[in-house]
Nucleic acid binder design. Sequence first.
DNA 1: ATCCATAGATTACAAACGTAATCCATGAGG
DNA 2: CCTCATGGATTACGTTTGTAATCTATGGAT
Lengths: 138, 138
Amino acid sequence: MRGRNQRKPVAPPGISDAEWKVMNVFWDRGPSTLREVVESLESGSDWKPRTVQTLIRRLVTKGALSVEELGREFRYTPVFSQADCQLDESRSFLGRVFDGRLVPFLAGMVESEKIPQEEIEALRRLLDEAEKRQSPSE
Amino acid sequence: MRGRNQRKPVAPPGISDAEWKVMNVFWDRGPSTLREVVESLESGSDWKPRTVQTLIRRLVTKGALSVEELGREFRYTPVFSQADCQLDESRSFLGRVFDGRLVPFLAGMVESEKIPQEEIEALRRLLDEAEKRQSPSE
DNA sequence: ATCCATAGATTACAAACGTAATCCATGAGG
DNA sequence: CCTCATGGATTACGTTTGTAATCTATGGAT
């Protein structure tokens, strides 16, 4: 069991709903042991520690977490950045539900959710930046 | 707290990946028979007709499609609007992946995808509208 | 030295999913 | 009338997911 899954696949693996909750803890805390994750999850989920362990193990198998021995426990570390996985999910979501198109997605959101004013402004700033980056002042 | 809530049977049921492809056909075409759906899917999937039939049946069981007899075939009709289901999925996606926050989602998108200029403008217009709708006249 | 809490490994087990095949009835074609 | 393609119903079957329990080894407490 020395250095079992250490090579990094090129793409983030499919991460399920429950697994996302676990990965989010790792991305928040960085490398962590099972116990640390269980504690972090105590507020916000009613999973038994065994359940968390199962999810972690599956994430290791999938190549989403790497393992390193740390005394008698293991310490797990995310293999992919949160941003990479988020992007991956975003693409797959948009593809599945909105035929890959961003505009209808945002249209639905602003139409049905109340977006607070500051958020609207933040979104606008994002668009400004994107525009600048893409047409570099010419 | 009014708003126009429609009394559909319930809320849109969970629709799986494969099922979305089928539902999208119904939303495009309106009420359709199995054969029509199979034909519509011919380009863009390599599913056997049986597979499509299974997916349709599951969607009926889930309450996402209603059935009506039409000669010796059945005609299936979406029970929920595409917009309702899209909204449902959007919320669940944002919750799972972005802690429910829209801004980081869009940040990731504009940072990693090249959004065409017209889309940026369309998105901006959406924000303008949202703003107007939410502060009718301050 | 003994016993327990706990970690990891193994096993469980049903529901949902992807992807059909088989069985049965029937309308269309010969 | 007999045959066949096709629709619906039933059945299939491996995989993934959610949610753990049991088994085994061991470091810490007594």
